[in-house]
Design a protein around this nucleic acid. Structure first.
Lengths: 80, 80, 80, 80
DNA sequence: ACGTTTGCGCTTTAGC
DNA sequence: GCTAAAGCGCAAACGT
């Protein structure tokens, strides 16, 4: 069944693209680990560093959240 | 205190490297989502595709062992 | 403005009811975790158990259909 | 195999306890939905309400996060 | 009613 | 090995 074979090839290509991207992603995650390792070697406390990264991300999210809330309120009150 | 500033700069650079890497990682994760979206548009079942990706990531032996254990548990519970 | 206060109280009560319910929900989720912990202590594989729970939740037909589709995809990719 | 049967019963009981708890959890989730439905019927904007619930939870979490950060800093600086 | 989008829960992974 | 956090998948909720 030719159609089945063609579809199988298409499916395989899609799967392989995904797997390739996930490998790249993992490589970057490893880079992150390396940076923490380097920081640790220079005497920094990585636990504190992780907390800082996390808080900075949260601050950003909170700001977006606040904006979203404002939009919702405006919509709820019929403002534009 | 000059020394403190230098250390602060160093720490800041490390933090920024990490944040930059995490942004890249997120971009790739978005690419993965796009590929699944494309697959869906072509009529593939993405849920099954995700399972395939997971299975291919596993070693063949691990996969067969996990499967065997699941069969044992299913039998114990009368699940068919 | 009395009317505003009354509405504010009403809203507040609704919010509190929701928060109370979500706390109860979380307590039960913790109980579930405890049972899995107990199972693990008795030597069961919790990962497989979770899979069993998921399978039992599915209708038998759905389960068999999902399984059949997975086999088709696996065959298309030569996964054994 | 008697031992297998006994284990099967034990496993079944654990699974059933989990399933029972998850039913309770679902019932509570449905209650939450009902409260939102009631609020909507009284003219409240549920999207805004959901945001409020979420923000209140976040505030609580943020406070705990801040406490954790303080502890980490103290530990990093050798304070007690 | 359907499709899209967001939020929630679970799974898995990383650190201790 | 265990606990905690991050990432992912699913499902409900909203808008069209």
């Amino acid at each position: 069944m030719a159609e089945g074979s063609i579809a199988a090839d298409e499916l395989r290509l899609l799967i392989e693209r995904i797997e390739r991207l996930e490998e790249e992603k993992k490589a970057i995650a490893d880079d992150v680990k390396d940076v923490y390792g380097e920081a640790k070697a220079r005497g920094y406390d990585t636990k504190t560093m992780r907390m800082i990264v996390r808080l900075r991300k949260m601050d950003k999210n909170d700001r977006q959240e606040a904006d979203a809330l404002l939009e919702i309120y405006k919509a709820a009150l019929g403002l534009e």
